[in-house]
Amino acid sequence: MKIASRAVMWVFLLLVAFLTLFPVLITILGSFKTNAELTAGATVMPTIWQFSNYAEAWKQANFSTYTVNSLFVAVTSTIGILFVSSMAAYVVNRMEFPGKKAYVGMQAFTMFVAIGAVVLRPQFELMIKLHLHNTLWGVVLILISAHASAFFILQSFMTGIPKELDEAARIDGCSRGRTFWTIVLPLLTPGLGVCALFAFRGAWNEYLLPFVFTLSKPELQTLTVGLANLKYGVSAASQTHYMMAGACLSILPILVVYLFANKSFMKMTAGSLKG
């Protein structure tokens, strides 16, 4: 009886694991197949490994541009989010000032109120006024503006850093600014790391925002946008192998990060529950 129930459990767990991995494996293996082999769908492993798919996707399907754009957007917005939210979290955690409650309430508000794609329109109009709509900086700024969750995460990490440390530095003649940059921020590294993971993942995977902002500017498109556009293209059926290679270019970097940092990802997701 006990053996039977254990067997059922293992079959179930392995089946779920297999179904979870299956689409990703299909993508990775598919990226090495010819288009004909892919659409015939008859093989699991590629009959001849087509490494040239990547070279062609990189050059002919513009994936070099898309990758550079994705990297730019993800790296700059991650750095921006870390700066903006850690500075705000520091003063909210350590200082008293009028309007503090209102500020925290506003951050919470932006996290919970969702009205969908509507906001993209005024955001786009704003970027036209700022002359940023022809660059990716507009997208980056909008991504940085959504830093409420990073703010709350860093806030809770900040609580764990003893205030006495600040005070000691102050007595030694350290200014508030220097205390933050040289004493508090280095101690905040674990929190910053977690926020960086989340911010990078969010920006790297973002689709709608760069899509709407780069509709008529292929040279600014990111991996997600370029890839989805392949699907809409007239020659979509003949480019499945490019789609697979392009999907891998998007999936693999983040999978590698996940390989090393999956504990942090999972711990933080679990932690969000406790608020």
Binding site: L21, V24, L223, T224, L227, I251, L255, Y258, F265
Partner: peptide, 12 residues
């Protein structure tokens, strides 16, 4: 493994 899909782009 089971948590992995949450880190991959929905659009991709």
């Amino acid at each position: 493994i089971i948590f992995m899909p949450t880190i991959i782009s929905t659009a991709v």
